[in-house]
Design a protein around this nucleic acid. Structure first.
Lengths: 334, 334
DNA sequence: TGAGGCGAGGGAAACGTTTCCGGGATGTGG
DNA sequence: CCACATCCCGGAAACGTTTCCCTCGCCTCA
């Protein structure tokens, strides 16, 4: 392998016998002389020229990169988003930079501050919590940002929301309709945006169904399988009259299914179970898990599209898009 | 918000009353004068200076970016890798660029050709198939590459392997030991690297256990839940004497579990099931799925570490690291 | 046939850094 | 007290593009 340096536009110009400006024009379609274009292309092939994106970026002031920052790519909801965001961006010639913040608020703010000032043309952000400092940072970003998740109304930033409040409510209403009277809820941390919204939705669902609230039937834990399993086991042991459980995400709901099986209760015969996020887990569990789809894939796609529009120069006022939730009923609640 | 351009190093120099070279030196720790450093830092804060990574990259010839290219980030094995790769790289100051090729060989080659010549300092690649053109491209990359997956021995590139052949064999031996005599195998496409290796391992496992080969008990399909379910249903209907099934990954194995349930067969009583990859799915399924861990997370971490070493200037001959598989026995085969 | 207009292409500046080089100040030893 | 080495810092070049500006040649029209 040759250790030679990559050929530059100067090399191409020399071989083609033209000036570097002409090469640049020919390559960027800013020339009408077909002969010139042909000569340049021939020279490009001859020397194996590949433009330096870095130099281009320096000159043109955009990098062709977009960052997606979230807590943990391991989370199925974020994963669904990435799967849609990446192709959407790629089709428009953008590369995707991935940044997991690991639930570290400082890191998240650091991303906002430094990412946005550098090496990306735009940013899609999924903050788990939104503090005043987030809002402040969002007001000052140097590049367009789209936030996926709940954002105060006065923050001038494009915002794609899932209505997990309505989602939780849908689930509760569905369970009540199916005959459940003692509905338990296993939530994530109450101080997270989704944890809070889902709890509110749960309560409003109870109210809508005319069922009493009972704090004993609610647990706040983590959005994880083991946490859900433990909490469910404890709750169901203490309250054997529970006839339905809503898990704040599919992992928790899977934990609930396992706890029920450990306790010898039949699903959905004795207890109905519904999860949230409608991840691939839901369809493959046993019994297949009813789950509230919050449209993660759609949110990802929409966020990417919004961002692309901004990058295209659209300076309309910030948009708020809410993706409506939908309930996917499977056997676990039928 | 001000529409002013970002301050440059010149701005800082002007405010601090020094030259731009001094600013650069102070910021990069190449000066011993504490007073100078203090003045520069003060000026940096005053004008809100953030260095332009693009300009730095142009000058220093490295970008601080590393790309990870795989077929589909939705695949749990790749996901595990990303989860380890990203923090490992971030801790060393590198950003992660994500590229899903979508099983498109052309695109994969395109990544190799263009990514490697541009905007990344290194590349971690998970090719699903390895063609001659891959090998050719790998020989010519401009930056260090680490390949996760099987690679011909003569390709001079760092390589991290899972021994999925031995992994499949482990599973078969385990099943045979548990008493299985008619072991079926549902594989992915035979013309993929993992599909091939797992098939070979399956056969060598049979041989090791002294069991006859029976092509009727092998199916080649996709690495997906539905494909696994369909193939399993068809196979098990035609061969009710099958007493164990190996799925080439956890998704397939989950499909097998569902097919068995549909057919009213008990797991593990009537039929034992083992999957591969040991994804989070396995632990949450019912019954919990025995699965062969191919060390995805470890492979990701090791690949990242190898790459970092190369970027650090290590020019030892290419390394081949094989991560040994291990079987995680759960209830589905107990 | 000559003047004016137009288009194509070359020269050079600029993007924002890092780093080489050289000059002046400072310190040290004879 | 002078010569020489040392250290700091400023000037300027360079990284590889894009693009502005200007010149030159050609074509058209009077």
């Amino acid at each position: 392998m040759t250790q030679r340096r990559r050929p530059t536009i100067h090399e191409v110009a020399r071989v083609a016998g033209v000036s570097i400006s002409s090469v640049s024009r020919a390559l960027n379609g800013n020339t009408s002389n077909a002969d010139m274009v042909a000569r340049v292309n021939a020279a490009v092939r001859e020397v194996g020229y590949v433009p330096s994106v870095v130099a281009q970026s320096l000159k043109t002031r955009h990098t062709g990169q977009i960052a997606f920052a979230m807590e943990d790519i391991g989370n199925a909801a974020y994963l669904e988003m990435v799967r849609r965001i990446q192709p959407t961006l790629r089709d428009e010639g953008y590369r995707l930079l991935l940044h997991s913040t690991g639930a570290d608020v400082e890191d998240e703010l650091g991303v906002l501050a430094s990412l946005s000032q550098n090496y990306v043309d735009g940013l899609i952000l999924c903050p788990l919590r939104v503090t005043d400092r987030h809002v402040e940072a969002l007001r000052q970003t140097a590049v367009p940002v789209v936030v996926i998740g709940l954002l105060p109304d006065d923050v001038p930033v494009d915002n794609v929301r899932a209505d997990s409040r309505v989602g939780a409510r849908l689930a509760v209403e569905h369970l009540a309709e199916a005959g459940a009277r003692r509905i338990a809820f296993i939530d994530g941390p109450l101080d997270t945006v989704p944890g809070r919204a889902r709890y509110d939705g749960f309560r409003s669902g109870l109210a809508a169904a005319g069922l009493p609230e009972d704090d004993d039937l609610v647990r706040f834990t983590d959005f994880q399988f083991d946490a859900g399993r433990r909490a469910a086991r404890e709750l169901l042991t203490g309250h054997p009259d529970v006839d339905a459980v809503l898990g704040a995400n599919d992992l928790i709901a899977m934990g609930v299914l396992h706890a029920l099986r450990d306790l010898g209760r039949d699903v959905p015969g004795d207890v109905r179970v519904v999860g949230m996020d409608d991840t691939p887990l839901a369809a493959t569990s046993f019994p297949p898990l009813s789950s509230v789809s919050l449209g993660s894939a759609d949110r990802g796609r929409i966020a990417a599209e919004l961002l692309l529009r901004r990058l295209d120069g659209d300076d309309a006022p910030p948009e708020r898009v809410t993706v409506p939730p939908s309930l996917n009923v499977r056997e676990s609640s039928r």
